[in-house]
Structure formats: structure tokens, C-alpha cells
Computed example of a mutant assay.
Amino acid sequence: MLLDSFVLGAASGFNGGDILFQLAMFLILLTLIKKFAWGPLMGIMTQREEHIANEITAAEESRVEAKKLLEEQKALLKEARTEAQAMIESAKKQGEVQREEIITTARSESDRMKESAKLEIEQQKEQAVAAIREQVASLSVLVASKVIEKELSAADQEKLINEYIQEAGEKR
């Protein structure tokens, strides 16, 4: 019951001094909050806003720089491809030149070997003809001595050989 009478008494009476005191305290508290909390809080918020703006600007600059670097890399890649193609073409041309040089060298070597073989064949032919003449001469002397049945002197034999060789050469 005591509680009921206290609640009823407080409700029935209007206390203006308490209200003014509470309003004054509220205003003082609001001023203190504005001075000590709101200012630093707004400073932190301003710093945060500037930091975010700087980060956005830096990101945009990085994006522009990355785009620029990408374009440079594309240009360098294109240039490298062009250089590689030029090197391939140059190598092909050099290969063709070397191939032609090798073919020319092989042909000249082949011609030289043919000429050398012809000269060797001609020399062997001449040696064979000389050997045959010599054999024919000795056989002729032998046949002639048998036919004549006499012995010839060395000078007569030489004369007879030369005559026979000359006759054999004319008949050819």
C-alpha cells in the first residue's frame, strides 16, 4: 500500500523544478558531447572520408597506369612477333642462299671430277696404246726374224720396229 500511495502522489503532483533541472542537465550534457565527442568524431569521419577519397583516386590512377602498361605490353608483343617473323624470313632466305651455294659447289666439284676422270682415262688410254705398240713391235721383230730366219743387229731391229709402228699408225 505504501507503494500505491507513493505512485499516486507522484502522479498527482507536478514538479516543475525537477523538469527544469533535468532540461538544464540535458543541455549541459549536449554541449559537452558537442565539444568533446562530436568534434573529434566529426574529425575522424572527415579523415576517414579523405582517406577513402585518396584510396579511390589512387585506385583510379593505378587502373589508368595498368591500362597504359597493358597497351605498352601489347605493342611490345606485336613488335616481338614482327621481329620474329622477320628473323624467320631472313633465316629462310639465308637457307636458300646456302642451298644454292652447296648445289653450285657440288656441281663444280662434279664437273672437276669428270674432267679429272677424262684426263685419267686419256692417260691410261695412251699408256695402253704405247704398251700395245711396244708389244706389237716386239712381236713384229720376232715374226720378222722368224720369217727372215736371220738375226738382226740392234740397229736393224730398231729401224724395223719404227717402220712397223709407222705402218701400223697409218693403217689406223
Rank of each mutant, 00 (worst) to 15 (best):
V97N: 11
V97T: 15
E100Y: 14
E101R: 10
I102M: 04
I103A: 15
T105Q: 04
T105E: 08
A106W: 07
A106I: 15
R107K: 09
S108T: 13
S108F: 08
E109W: 07
S110N: 09
S110I: 13
S110R: 01
R112V: 05
K114D: 00
E115T: 11
E115L: 13
S116G: 03
A117E: 03
L119Q: 08
E120C: 06
E120K: 07
E126Q: 09
V129L: 14
A130D: 07
R133W: 06
E134I: 00
S138R: 06
S140L: 04
S140D: 11
S140A: 05
V143K: 05
A144Q: 02
A144C: 10
A144S: 11
S145R: 03
K146G: 00
K146I: 00
V147N: 12
V147K: 12
I148T: 01
I148V: 03
I148N: 13
E149S: 15
K150Y: 02
E151Q: 07
E151D: 15
A154Y: 06
D156A: 13
D156L: 13
Q157I: 07
Q157T: 15
L160D: 02
N162P: 01
N162E: 15
Y164M: 09
Y164P: 00
Y164D: 05
Y164A: 14
A168S: 15
E170A: 14
K171R: 12
K171G: 14
